[in-house]
């Protein structure tokens, strides 16, 4: 009956702070919900607002790592990065299930618990989207040798994929710009990478980057397009399979689909 709904900021820190407060205020997990960001109001529920506090969020993170291990923390933090209204509640209930001792063995393997399963699904979803970006992201060389990639993932995965490219291309200057989520990662050659949240003007420049492709870029793009065509076996043509493995929504930013379908 007496449900309590904790509303918090729609960020990982906000949700973790709410988890901390739920315990600090000694609320029962069965009758408590965490709601990140805006949502429909409920009747017959107490609302309490939680102010984000990074220090408290850190404490929850430390507890999760201490009690459930790094792997569980990775899954939880991936789930927190997902764009899903139910993630706050799922993370809270999963942590509560773990702390209550209901789940034997590693937390993330207790898939019989609904909240753990939800966290697992969200984490898997994020991992998949990040993996897809690592596969399908395409850099284009600008005048001056800077590599520029525009991506349009359905989740905000820029921060998750950039370490892969930073490790792979330590001596390149590159920018990965997610135009949908308005976030970009910048990697100066030989230095650590960082994130920027571009303002309107920068975002517009990202959109018009195609005017600044280098001459070599055009040649390489054409070579790769031809390669993609000639490496397919005509007798085995199978568009359906191609589309299953490489869905259409990724093709907008991919070099080989720039002008024509690859045949």
């Amino acid at each position: 009956m007496n449900r309590t709904i904790l509303t918090c900021e729609d960020t990982a820190e906000g949700i973790l702070t709410a988890v901390y407060q739920a315990y600090a205020w000694k609320l029962q997990p069965e009758s408590t919900e965490i709601q990140a960001g805006e949502a429909d109001l409920c009747l017959f529920a107490f609302y309490r607002r939680v102010e984000t506090d990074a220090a408290l969020a850190e404490k929850v993170a430390a507890t999760v790592i201490h009690r459930f291990g790094e792997e569980a923390w990775e899954d939880i933090s991936y789930a927190l990065a997902a764009h899903d209204a139910g993630r706050g509640q799922a993370v809270y209930q999963a942590v509560a299930a773990g702390l209550s001792g209901r789940i034997r063995g590693p937390l993330m393997q207790g898939l019989t618990d609904g909240a753990v399963r939800k966290v697992f699904e969200l984490s898997r979803h994020m991992h998949r989207e990040a993996q897809r970006m690592i596969q399908f992201l395409r850099f284009r060389e600008l005048e001056g040798g800077v590599l520029f990639a525009r991506i349009e993932p359905c989740e905000n995965v820029t921060a998750l994929v950039t370490p892969h490219f930073a490790d792979r291309f330590p001596l390149e200057n590159f920018v990965i710009a997610d135009t949908g989520h308005r976030i970009a990662a910048v990697h100066p050659a030989g230095k650590a990478w960082f994130l920027i949240w571009p303002d309107g003007e920068t975002a517009e420049r990202f959109e018009r980057m195609s005017e600044r492709y280098s001459a070599a870029e055009k040649e390489m793009a054409e070579l790769f397009r031809r390669f993609c065509v000639s490496t397919g076996i005509r007798e085995r043509k199978n568009r359906k399979l191609q589309q299953q493995l490489l869905p259409l929504r990724y093709r907008g930013t991919m070099t080989e689909f720039d002008r024509q379908e690859i045949l």
């Binding site: 596969q135 993609c228 397919g232 085995r236 043509k237 399979l241 191609q242 991919m254 690859i262």
Partner: peptide, 16 residues
């Protein structure tokens, strides 16, 4: 890592 898929649905991972 598969980077692309040709029209026959086979992956393009290496410059073959």
């Amino acid at each position: 890592i598969c980077h692309s898929f040709a029209a026959d649905g086979r992956c393009i991972s290496l410059l073959k």
